[in-house]
Structures are given as C-alpha cells and as structure tokens.
C-alpha cells in the first residue's frame, strides 16, 4: 500500500470545503467544551488524526505488485493464487485464461489488444475492464446462434447477421453487461485487461500450473 501526502495538519489554501484539518480543529474545540462541562471525563476525542490524502492502488499490465501465500502449515496450491495482470502479461491477445473457478463457473483474465472475433454467449456475461480502455460492440443476431442451455461463450464464424444494439467504451473499473443470446466484439487500441464473469466454455484456457503459486 502506498500512502501519499502528510498528516492532516496542512490546509490547502482557498479550499471552501471542510478539510480533515478543519474537522480536527472542530473536534478539538468540541473536546475542550466537553471537558469544561464534564471535567471528570477525559480523552473523549477519537484519537489520532487521519491522513489528509489517500492513494488508492490499482494494478495494471505495466505495474502490479503480487502478494502471495505465506505457509504456516499448508500447501499453497490450495489457494490457487495468481495475479490477473501477470496472467494477461503472459497471454496472447484475447486468450481467455481462467484465474478463478468454482465448479462450472470461471473468471477469465483476457488480454485485450487489437480487435477480437465476434462471440455469442448463451447466458449473461459481465466484462470488467481492469486496465486500459476497451470498446465493446453488441449485436442482436437475426437467428439464434447458441443453445440457451449451453455454457460459456463461443466464437461466431465471420460477421454475424443481425441488428446493431449499441457500443460501450469502457475504461478502467467499468463493467459492461454482455447479454444472453447476443453477440459481442471487443477492441482495444492499447494492451488492456478484461476480467470476465462467465461459465467455463470451449475456449476457456486452464493453465493453473503455469499461473499459480506452487511453493
């Protein structure tokens, strides 16, 4: 974790909003008032002053730090521990590599780079962009292209026939619904990463021994 900025003793000049420093002074005033009113009650403030500025750390292809399993009495393989950015870094564009699996359900880390094939999904999928920017085109096929009872998305040969539904331009932290029965195609001008909530399908890649902590 990285923390930037000092403790909340400095007040940004001209800031109209109540800053942590203001809060702190106000708390102090209230504390003195309470102390005068109730001299037997001491130390009724909230303790130390919080940081004035916090930095939220996200990962990316270019910069991520990986944690890990520190074993006391266990096998680290039990935790199936990987890092999605490390996985995407080692993947070819649009490879669907499972980074989590719970029975038939999977989360796939996808390296988005260039333009993907068209795919069709039998059930809702959810694409969370975790690095970069991804454009997602959605299309309603004229005729059903997949059995609604099937699991996992599959590739569509060539350009599917149907009606365009719309386009989403998703940046880091944005989640997009990939609706059941519909087709989608993604593109990314720069290498990006998508975390896909889906079900294991014909194109899901399972390479646990390559991506997970073993020792």
């Amino acid at each position: 974790m990285t923390r930037a900025g000092g403790v909340g003793t400095g007040r940004p000049s001209g800031a109209p909003k109540k800053t942590p420093a203001d809060e702190c002074i106000w708390n102090r005033v209230q504390q003195v008032v309470r102390w005068v009113q109730h001299p037997h009650v001491r130390n009724i403030d909230k303790g130390g002053v919080p940081l004035s500025k916090y930095t939220t750390v996200f990962g990316s292809l270019d910069h991520f730090e990986k944690g890990g399993v520190e074993v006391i009495n266990d096998d680290p393989k039990n935790y199936v521990f990987s890092n999605m950015f490390e996985v995407a870094k080692g993947s070819k564009p649009w490879e669907k590599v499972a980074v989590a699996k719970n029975q038939e359900y999977v989360l796939e880390a996808i390296r988005a780079e260039g333009t993907s094939e068209w795919r069709v999904t039998p059930h809702d999928e959810f694409a969370l962009v975790v690095d970069g920017e991804v454009v997602i085109e959605l299309l309603a096929p004229t005729a059903p292209l997949v059995d609604p009872g099937a699991s996992g998305s599959r590739a569509v040969k060539g350009e599917p026939e149907g009606s365009p539904m719309g386009t989403v331009t998703a940046g880091r932290g944005h989640m997009t619904l990939l609706p059941a029965g519909r087709c989608y195609r993604m593109s990314a001008a720069k290498p990006s990463v998508v975390l896909l909530q889906t079900i294991e399908g014909p194109d899901t890649i399972l390479r646990w021994a390559d991506i997970c902590q073993k020792f």
Partner: peptide, 18 residues
C-alpha cells in the same frame, strides 16, 4: 483454529479460500 497460512493480497491478486 490452528493457523494454516497468511494470504497477502494486492491489487490484481486472485485466491481461493478452501
């Protein structure tokens, strides 16, 4: 309740809990 492991998770890390 016997300790088994510590799992340190940073942004992008994925881990199962058995």
């Amino acid at each position: 309740g016997k300790p088994r492991a510590k799992v340190i998770m940073k942004a992008g890390d994925c881990a199962a809990m058995p």
